[in-house]
Nucleic acid binder design. Sequence first.
DNA 1: CCTGATAGTTACCGACCGGTCACACTCATG
DNA 2: CATGAGTGTGACCGGTCGGTAACTATCAGG
Lengths: 212, 212
Amino acid sequence: MSIRTTHKNQEHKDPGEFEDVAGEEKLRPRERIVSAACELFRTHGIRGIGVDAIADAAGTNKMTLYRHFGSKDDLICEVLRSTSRKAARVWDELEASYPDNPKAQLRGWIAARAKCLEYEPYGCDLANAAIELKEQGHPAHSVIEEFKLQQRQRLADLCSRAGMKQADLLADMLSMLLEGARVSRQAMGGEGPSTQFAKACETTISSLEHQH
Amino acid sequence: MSIRTTHKNQEHKDPGEFEDVAGEEKLRPRERIVSAACELFRTHGIRGIGVDAIADAAGTNKMTLYRHFGSKDDLICEVLRSTSRKAARVWDELEASYPDNPKAQLRGWIAARAKCLEYEPYGCDLANAAIELKEQGHPAHSVIEEFKLQQRQRLADLCSRAGMKQADLLADMLSMLLEGARVSRQAMGGEGPSTQFAKACETTISSLEHQH
DNA sequence: CCTGATAGTTACCGACCGGTCACACTCATG
DNA sequence: CATGAGTGTGACCGGTCGGTAACTATCAGG
């Protein structure tokens, strides 16, 4: 097995044409594959794209893909984990943007989610994967569930730190509003209920704040 | 065991065993196919099941399926239209249950949706189809969009008739809560935010009712 | 220079996909 | 009895799927 060999493998391919995402030709095959798979899963669906097309888009080939990932299901899990890590980083950045100001962090969260809703027609990759992969026991399900639990917890913590009453209920309501806005966006385009997401969040927050 | 996958005789003179959904042996092939496809799409995903398996589950064969539906895409649209009609009937029944009492109808809507959330792990077939079928221009998309617009309008009308202020905003919020609860249910099982759906609806309603 | 790890290439496999064909069968109606 | 519509049957098509085999090319480190 190959691990930890302090290898500094570098680009040894002729600097020819690379057809897809800019900057990717500097990455190693594994990262390129994950990145290409993520994008293709998003645009074609997980079941809608084949491993050959993924390897092609990553500027490599199927054999290399299968050396890094034992199966397509493995690749799916890895892509989902990568997206999950990216989302955690976004959370970290949000909290760092308004240090010691949880109320501003909450406002920032709403604004950021609303902006994504406006400009990204696809929803949450993890949620979409959960809907697309119905086979129970699929390894992706545990990745998805763990991610969703973590997101929910982070949101509940934020609500709590922001001094909200019934922070858990508020977090669940905001979670549902976001998830619902994303699926509405996919089902009926940019003219549906998703346009009211930010206002819905603010209404919900102030209603739980001023009650009692 | 001698394999008797399909008997030669037609279903009229053979009231014997049919393996799937009860009562279907009385229907004609077309309805059986739609019904079987609906169930299989739900459990395996639209891309996850083949036409042969659908025909098999419907107690018929692929040729008959293709005589009634020109293509799998046609069948998908027909299944979605059928589900859409069924949902419209549920709306009619709800309104008939509490005649001239829109407030009770709204309460009934919340209760019914909460009950479905509890007992049906799958979400909205139309929304799931929108997520699964990414190819733009797919004929299913217009069916889905029309359905979602209609559901949204019915809910907004109900809110308005129930005397709610900002009925459109309320309808969009309830739509997002429902859609989000359904996708949460699929992504994290029965322990997620979907358990708070009814309470979230009530909180939202009373917050819009008492504000000003 | 040799070796071992990584990557690229080509070809291949069996399975299944959506879709079509020709043909036999059944049955209600005339 | 004749007919024609609806259905069942099994073979078949070209294409694609996930996955593998065998071989070659590159390069780092000893």
